[in-house]
Design a protein around this nucleic acid. Structure first.
Length: 859
RNA sequence: GCCGAAGUGGCGGAACUGGCAGACGCACACGACUCAAAAUCGUGCGGGCUUUGCCCAUGCGGGUUCGAUUCCCGCCUUCGGCACCA
């Protein structure tokens, strides 16, 4: 038996502290020396490499891979820090961790740099990757670098092209001429998701509309599944799911077919969410791009006028491009033809209007001005009749005097046999009638459009298609992949797309007939490259297939995905779509790629986004240089919960640094039992408070383990986890101050050991250095996470609050778990309480075990 | 306009299931150490008052409850998403 509270080791500590105070043997906290040393060591030891091994539970931690701009910013540092804490924590918890990193390396900055500075995009990108990787390495992140991939390498884009062919084979990739979003600055088209408020997501330029022959992916075929499966994503933020839901924009309604009066064989199909207003139709409006327009107008004498009108619309669009489309004038032109309302045989004029969008529904709108605000504004502008067919409760509206459309529900009116019916019921009945008549029926429409993937640019994965005079469009056979991007190319920035002017690329042989053929000159949207990269990380060097299915079955899905909210409907929707396609092709077993998602907030400074123009930019490099990576990581994680925006504070960083120095001073002396000297004399250490100090520290140790574990695992609240560790450190200092000759070497050691283990995921370098100083041989990052002992947390006595009418009026100490009667008795023993209750009538006594007693008295 | 989130000290934030509002940190003030400063250690720190204590206080106004930062209703402000989607 070793007696407790031996004074010898504590004297050792004491003397050590004294010596330090004298200024010798002291080593300051020096992250600049510690951090690179451990980074090197860890890499040599290679224990961050993931190995497939089904015997222990796997965990896939992934942060959205970056575009290699060459400059790491605070936003990057934040995502990586969050991911790294999780990866390190879960590794200590006994999981088989895969934590890879790579590069979303195709994209326009490389190409633009090439044009401006005559550098080679491939070299430029390589350079940036190298630079950025160095910056990442300095942060002490636990990546398995052996899995690094770059989407711009032929070994990778070969499989992006393979994916395209898979989509093509499955009928999900097609080429069509369509009016598309064109960014004049980027000289390329954009998918719908890539237009934000009418402007380019990348450069902010107003987007124009252009007619081009382009490649699309049929993501709309998956609209229903993409929508429904959101319900399975329990661990995704509600916000992101709602954004995707809105983006997909499912509306239920009906399809209604209107024959053209003058040309009965010609039929116009419309989509409406309000079949109950069918009797209120007073016109029909077609989109300017509507395919039947030419046929319709032919022979009416309106041909000239139509051509002029379309020219005007186009001009209007070019000039008025941008937001506020709603306020744009609703131009219209009569086509000379009429449509017949299938429900009542009424003929209404057919017009062309710029407020009808070809891409939604059928590109034709049945105009019900009384019950749709846009139709109403159009009708008033062009003197079309307004016919009220839905009466709101307690009102009788008149078409002639209506000031705005009534869009709510009501009772049907002027609707033949349906008069007097509730509109909701009327919807169903009219849909039934349309079906009977064979002129429509229930239908669903989505806001989601097909994904436009052609980019008239050079630096992307070439679309593996060949055009042959004899055979037409022919896909490049898989065994001929990759279609290599010519690396030595002069980019002028003028002749787009660049590849079309590069003969040695364009000229090829037709895979079918062997004759002369031309290649597709467009490259793919980089969002395709990033919609499957999480699978490539699983088998990054495989040459026969994009990924190994068995390995994918083991590692997928990504258990925790972390990234910015800006990808709520871009990357995250595309990746879900591609995963579902791969599932349908029998290549993966999961229908959803990301089990859990964390959308981290932005990093601001002085309440505004960090930007060069504001001059409020702080870079990870500066922070690492000045304070070390550990301080930067700690501050970023401590200053706010991960999903919230974070305000950078130089003083806050200073505080984190101070805390780490405080920890350093605890561990810097090394193991405490160096066996020199005798214990401190009585009175040399102030405030001896006896046994209690020991119990307080013990409880603090175990309480902190519990809190930190829960905060990381269940809530992702790293900020509160860190504050708990700070409290433990404060308790250790208090113990050192107060223990006196009861100082327990073993307890002190346990406290330090625990602190270091708990800090390991957050500040890996300092923790490692401290761990070794405490006398350990093996890395702290290979240690099991500490377990807490519940029994230590049990307390015998608790302090309860005593309230009178809900206001705190006193306190009482009671044994833990006391019953109602004991609580009340203890509360009444308090002088103030009994005084307050004297002569008063107690109506009610409320007790909450171990918490409070509340006396309700008559006022 | 529609959809969504958030409003708590001088500041970042905490309070997990309705139970002591303000943990932890920053800033500030004071004290110790020092010739002095820095560093460090310690103490205090929402506001008010008639200060053994009492009152007010979690954007504003109501409500439910013994008790509300937490639940409900109405409003205000800020931020984010969508924006002629028939």
């Amino acid at each position: 038996m070793v007696p407790r509270n031996i004074s010898v080791p504590s004297r050792a500590v004491f003397l050590y502290l004294k010596r330090r105070a004298g200024g010798w043997l002291k080593v300051d906290y020096n992250p600049r020396e510690i951090e690179p040393r451990w980074q090197k060591k860890w890499e040599e030891e290679g224990f961050y490499s993931a190995v497939s091994e089904a015997s222990i539970p796997k965990y896939y931690v992934l942060e959205m891979f970056p575009y290699p701009s060459g400059k790491l910013h605070m936003g990057h540092m934040r995502v990586y820090s969050i991911g790294d804490v999780l990866a390190r924590f879960l590794r200590m918890r006994g999981y088989n961790i895969i934590h890879p990193m790579g590069w979303d390396a195709f994209g326009m900055p490389a190409e633009n740099a090439a044009i401006e500075n005559r550098v080679n995009p491939a070299r430029w990108t390589e350079q940036n990757i190298k630079q950025m990787k160095t910056q990442q390495r300095r942060l002490g992140l636990s990546y398995d670098w052996s899995r690094e991939v770059s989407t711009a390498s032929p070994e990778y884009y070969r499989w992006t092209q393979w994916l395209f062919l898979l989509l093509y084979r499955r009928g999900l990739a097609y080429k069509k001429k369509a009016s598309v979003n064109w960014c004049p600055t980027c000289q390329t088209v954009l998918a719908n998701e890539q237009v934000e408020g009418g402007c380019c997501w990348r450069c902010g330029t107003g987007v124009e509309s252009r007619q081009l022959d382009q490649w699309f992916l049929k993501i709309t075929d998956y609209a229903e599944r993409l929508l429904n499966d959101l319900a399975q994503l329990e661990d995704w933020p509600e916000k992101v799911k709602i954004m995707q839901e809105n983006w997909i924009g499912r509306s239920e309604g009906a399809e209604v077919v209107f024959p053209v009066q003058e040309l009965p064989e010609l039929k116009l199909t419309t989509f409406t969410t309000r079949p109950d207003t069918l009797y209120g139709v007073t016109f029909m409006a077609l989109a300017p791009e509507h395919p039947l327009l030419d046929q319709l107008v032919k022979g009416t004498g309106y041909e000239q006028k139509l051509a002029g009108f379309l020219e005007q619309v186009r001009k209007e669009e070019r000039e008025g491009a941008g937001p506020a489309a709603e306020d744009a004038p609703k131009l219209g032109l009569f086509t000379g033809r009429h449509a017949v309302n299938p429900i009542n045989g009424e003929a209404v004029p057919i017009l062309v209007s710029n407020y009808v969008v070809m891409e939604y529904g059928t590109g034709a709108v049945m105009g019900v001005p009384a019950h749709d605000q846009r139709d109403f504004m159009f009708a008033r502008r062009h003197q079309l009749p307004v016919k009220v067919v839905i009466q709101p409760p307690g009102e009788r509206l008149q078409g002639e005097t209506l000031r705005e459309a009534y869009e709510g529900p009501g009772v049907m009116d002027h609707s033949g046999p349906y008069d007097g019916l509730q509109s909701e019921l009327g919807k169903r009945q009219i849909i039934g009638r349309l079906r009977e008549l064979g002129v429509g029926g229930a239908d669903i429409s989505y806001r989601l459009r097909d994904w436009l993937i052609s980019r008239q640019r050079y630096w992307g994965a070439p679309i593996p298609m060949v055009y042959c005079k004899g055979c037409g469009m022919v896909p490049v056979p898989e065994e001929q992949l990759p279609v290599r991007l010519p690396e030595e190319i002069e980019l002028s920035g003028e002749r787009m797309p660049p590849l079309s002017h590069y003969e040695s690329f364009m000229e090829t042989r037709c895979p079918q007939c062997g004759g002369k053929a031309r290649r597709e000159a467009d490259t793919m949207d980089t969002f395709i490259c990033s919609s499957w990269y999480f699978l490539r990380f699983i088998s990054p060097r495989l040459t026969e297939r994009p990924f190994d299915q068995k390995e994918a079955d083991y590692w997928m899905p990504v258990d925790q995905y972390i990234g910015g909210i800006e990808h709520a409907v871009l990357h995250l929707l595309y990746a879900r779509f591609i995963t579902k396609v791969l599932y349908d092709a029998g290549l993966v077993k999961v229908q959803e790629p990301f089990k859990r998602l964390l959308a981290q907030g932005m990093v601001n400074k002085d309440g505004a986004k960090m930007s060069k123009s504001r001059g409020n930019v702080v870079t990870p490099d500066e922070i690492v240089e000045r304070y070390g990576a550990d301080t930067g990581r700690l501050f970023i994680l401590f200053a706010a919960p991960p999903e919230r925006d974070l305000d950078w504070s130089d003083q806050g960083v200073e505080g984190s640094y101070r805390f780490l120095k405080r920890v350093w001073r605890l561990v810097e002396p090394g193991p405490v039992d160096d066996g020199t000297g005798a214990g401190p004399g009585v009175g040399e250490i102030e405030g001896n408070r006896g046994d209690d100090v020991e119990r307080i520290l013990t409880r603090s140790i175990h309480g902190t383990i519990k809190k930190v574990t829960q905060d990381i695992e269940e809530r992702f609240n790293f900020n509160t986890a860190i504050s708990a560790i700070m409290e433990l450190v404060n308790d250790i200092y208090a113990y050192r101050r107060q223990a006196g000759d009861r100082f327990s070497d073993s307890l002190y050691r346990e406290a330090l050991t625990t602190t270091v283990l708990l800090l390991a995921p957050f500040v890996p370098h300092l923790a490692e250095e401290a761990w070794r100083r405490l006398g350990h041989r093996e890395s702290v990052h290979l240690q099991p996470w500490p377990e807490y002992r519940e029994e230590v947390l049990q307390v015998e006595q608790v302090e309860i609050v005593v309230q009178v009418n809900g206001k705190v009026r006193g306190r009482a100490r009671v044994p833990a778990g006391s019953g109602e009667q004991d609580l009340i008795e203890a509360a009444l023993k308090n002088r103030r309480i009994s005084d307050l209750l004297k002569g008063k009538q107690v109506i009610k006594k409320i007790t909450v075990p171990d918490r409070l007693v509340n006396f309700v008295i008559r006022p």
